[in-house]
Simulated assay, not measured.
Amino acid sequence: MATGKPRILQDGRDMIWTVLALLALCVFVLFASGNWTFGFKAGSGDDKVPAFDVSAALAADARSMPFPIRRPATPDGWKPNSGSTQTVGGQVSSNVGWVTKKGSYVQLTQTDAPEEELVATLGGYDAMGAGKREAGGHSWVVYDGENKNRFWIADLGDVRIGVRSKGSEADIEQIAKAV
């Protein structure tokens, strides 16, 4: 009776062949599960954007927050992907976000906190005013924040609206008009 290892396992080649077989198995599993892409698709049309129900989130916020919540019409091709609440200067805020057709993220924040606090939350304490714009019948103050974030803020009396994105100003303007 032979008591040693099989002949194929007698040198360093057995480790190399085992590792190669495991790598091939991992690559097969990644491709088969659809969790590996090469990024050939442009924009947000790849269905990898997590689904989120903006209408339900804003309706829930409207029931629990002390200020009116607006639900803007979403531009065609934009995918809602997130929602949250957070504290802004001691006040609560409602946040929802979309991924645009071009793949950039746009966030809508609604709060009754003072504008200075909203500016600090959306763009950091170093955010600088960059002018004013008119959109949707309201005057918006334009800010440049940290990390190339541009955001607009409008004071509608009972609520402050902030729209932030690293994408184009046209994306910000579309939500600002819809509000």
Rank of each mutant, 00 (worst) to 15 (best):
I153D: 02
Q91I: 02
T121M: 14
G129C: 07
I161H: 04
D144P: 00
A42G: 09
G103D: 04
G129Q: 14
G45E: 03
K48A: 01
Q110E: 15
A51S: 10
A42Y: 07
V159A: 07
M128Q: 15
W78H: 01
F151T: 02
A59I: 01
K79I: 14
L118Q: 04
V106F: 00
K101A: 13
A120W: 10
P75D: 00
S165T: 10
A113L: 06
K41Y: 01
A170E: 10
D76K: 10
D126A: 09
G157H: 04
G129E: 15
V49P: 04
V142T: 09
L108M: 05
G77N: 03
P114D: 08
G123H: 06
D61M: 08
V106D: 08
G97T: 07
L122Y: 12
A120F: 12
E146P: 00
R71C: 03
P66Y: 00
M128W: 00
A56L: 09
P50G: 06
D47N: 07
D126Q: 12
S84D: 08
Y105G: 00
N147E: 15
D155C: 02
A154M: 06
G167A: 12
D47G: 02
K148T: 09
A56Q: 10
N147G: 06
R164Q: 13
Q107Y: 11
Y125T: 11
L122S: 09
G45Y: 03
S168Y: 09
A73P: 01
A73H: 01
D144M: 11
A170Q: 10
S55V: 05
N95L: 14
M128P: 00
Y125L: 11
S55I: 01
V49W: 03
K166R: 15
Y105C: 00
A57S: 01
G83H: 07
V163N: 02
I161E: 07
L156N: 04
G39V: 06
T121F: 15
T100A: 07
G129P: 15
Q86C: 00
Y125I: 11
D112F: 08
I69L: 07
E169N: 11
I161G: 05
K79A: 15
P114A: 05
D155L: 02
I172V: 13
D46M: 03
S168N: 10
G162H: 03
A170W: 01
T121R: 15
V163D: 05
Q86E: 14
N81G: 13
V92L: 12
L156Q: 05
S104K: 12
K132G: 07
W78G: 02
Y143D: 03
G90T: 05
S55H: 09
G123R: 03
G45S: 05
Q86Y: 11
